[in-house]
Design a protein around this nucleic acid. Structure first.
Length: 272
DNA sequence: AGAAGGACCTGCACGC
DNA sequence: TGCGTGCAGGTCCTTC
């Protein structure tokens, strides 16, 4: 599942391949189209545009485009659960579940493939500034602003971490891993956590995310290659997906429960 | 308004 | 072997 570290790695991989290239034409599947912006409106806004840069904002991949030297609209890609961006030469067969194809001046194609159809494509126009995402960036937010996000909230801290309008980029895996490292039970009410515990969580979120970006950088780099699809790197999860296994810190069996509608893994001894 | 829960969608791991 | 069932979860929508 692409969360912040995976999206970061994919965005930089795509950027390395298509930066400076130009879009010749765009095609979108009309069958239950994944476009938030109607395809009929999106295609003309992409045609002839130069790709200045591809980068990550939250879990979104942002294509900064220009037209005749001037900045134009941004193309926004959300991978959902199973979305993939492939850069292929046109001769490579188009895989199943391909919902969008951008033909590039270099002769290659940028393909959006998504079996589960949770991914979304959209156009962001320059009005009101560039695309900033729904929430705050976990990697750059200050301790003070982080703590302020949780103030007065009555939902669980796990649900708060998953709420993209507060922090964007954290998903189920890194929420569980961050809470484990911070020693916080996922069911704790967000607004009732002491300031020092929030500071600890702030620190561990950054550590987990930056560590995953470092670990994933090399092995995910082939992800966008037409024939090199490997999936995401295997993160060294301490709790996620380890139900029943002994905690690496205290040996207690890792438990799993449902919090905020999601499978939630935790150590009943380390996390209070 | 904030919080909670279901719907969406498909592939895959199971169990019989 | 083959088929049915349940589970996975990011986000959107509805309900409370």
């Amino acid at each position: 599942m692409p969360e912040l570290p995976e999206v970061e790695t994919i965005a930089s991989g795509v950027n390395r391949r298509v930066q400076g290239d130009s879009i010749v034409s765009a095609w979108f599947s009309l069958y239950r189209e994944p476009c938030r912006t109607p395809a009929a409106e999106m295609a003309p806004a992409l045609d002839g545009r130069r790709i200045e840069r591809v980068r990550r904002v939250g879990k979104h991949i942002v294509f900064d485009l220009s037209y005749r030297g001037a900045a134009s609209a941004q193309w926004i890609v959300h991978l959902g659960m199973t979305g993939r961006l492939l850069v292929s030469v046109a001769a490579v067969p188009v895989p199943p579940h391909t919902h969008a194809i951008l033909r590039l001046a270099s002769g290659r194609e940028l393909r959006f493939v998504d079996a589960r159809r949770f991914g979304r494509l959209a156009l962001h126009t320059a009005e009101g500034g560039g695309f900033a995402g729904p929430g705050r960036e976990p990697l750059t937010i200050s301790k003070e602003e982080f703590a302020a996000l949780f103030c007065g909230r009555k939902l669980s801290v796990k649900a708060a971490l998953l709420n993209q309008r507060l922090l964007h980029g954290i998903g189920n895996i890194y929420a569980d891993e961050s809470l484990f490292r911070a020693g916080i039970r996922p069911t704790r009410v967000a607004g009732r956590l002491a300031r020092e515990r929030l500071d600890h969580l702030h620190t561990e979120i950054r550590a987990v995310l930056t560590g995953a970006i470092r670990a994933g950088g090399s092995s995910v780099s082939d992800y966008v290659d037409a024939d090199g699809v490997r999936g995401f790197f295997q993160t060294e999860h301490r709790v996620y997906g380890r139900e029943g296994e002994p905690c690496a810190v205290c040996g207690t069996r890792i438990r799993k429960m449902v919090v905020a509608g999601r499978g939630t893994h935790y150590c009943p001894r380390c996390q209070r």
